[in-house]
Computed example of a mutant assay.
Amino acid sequence: MSNALALPVNLSTGTFESYLTAVRQMPRLTSEEERELALRFRDHGDLEAARQLVLSNLRFVVHVARGYSGYGLPMPDIIQEGNIGLMKAVKRFDPDVGVRLVSFAVHWIKAEIHEYVIKNWGIVKVATTKAQRKLFFNLRKFKQDVGWLSADEAKAIAKDLDVELSTVYEMEQRLGNRDVSFDLPVDESEEESAVAPNHYLQQHGADPAELLENADWSGHEQDLLTEALSELDERSLDILSSRWLADKKATLHELAERYNVSAERIRQLEQNAMKKLRSAVVLEA
């Protein structure tokens, strides 16, 4: 499926900003269009329909991925992992369930991102020096033979590798943590299911489709406002900036003195400029 769904925009080519621009320009699907495409893919194996489902929801992956910007990992890589999750979700999506694709896909997108973060973030934070990286691999090999370290063994390793004793114990603890499936099957024991990451990494109380809609609309309004501001004449733009955007806002009389007109004329220019901005946003929306 992944080969057939090769995307026209790729994080490995061009710039990251050009990718984001291309994603924002992808048309969104109505619920009826989405259902029709999903049925074509499920019932007839129509890969072009699956491709359109993926492309129309790439912006949602970007929206989810931005929530993981604090881990110190490359955002393009996080988004790429989320895209893989989206494609997996499209493959498993059932249009007869009655939910939008983004509501279903959020689990698969986050699962791929979580796996990437878990695999990459911990070692980045601990093994930041050459000695610590050497400790990671040597300690892993040593523990396979002897299990947990004694106090004397830990001190000897710390001395040999020139690292703090606390670093040895910290690395040992990390190596001792076993992997847990993101979403354990329902037949697993209740104790194991309770610690599955999907119970504590998921976001509660928000519909993914609604979050995407709000975030996308906010960005659209910002673009419209920026474009409308660029079309104002220099004087009107300066008046709005001085009255609304400056840290120390100018009064009508101060601006009247600056442009050698009456305060009433400044007020009229300000109102006209505001009317143009409102009209641009409302009409384009």
Score class of each variant (00 low, 15 high):
P8M: 04
L11Q: 04
L11M: 12
R28C: 07
S31V: 11
R35E: 09
R51C: 07
Q52F: 05
Q52L: 13
N57S: 10
F60L: 00
R66D: 07
G72C: 01
I79D: 00
N83F: 05
N83A: 06
I84D: 05
D94I: 04
D96C: 07
D96E: 14
A105P: 03
H107M: 14
K110Q: 08
A111F: 07
H114I: 06
Y116G: 01
N120Y: 08
W121P: 01
I123Q: 08
K125R: 09
T129N: 02
K130T: 12
A131S: 15
A131K: 02
A131C: 04
Q132K: 15
V146N: 02
G147I: 05
E153K: 06
A158C: 08
G176E: 05
D179H: 10
S193M: 15
H199P: 07
Y200T: 15
H204D: 12
A206Y: 03
D207V: 15
N214A: 12
N214G: 03
E221W: 06
L225M: 14
T226E: 09
L232D: 10
E234H: 13
S236A: 14
L237S: 15
L245G: 09
L255I: 11
A256K: 00
Y259F: 11
A263V: 03
E264L: 06
Q271N: 14
Q271Y: 05
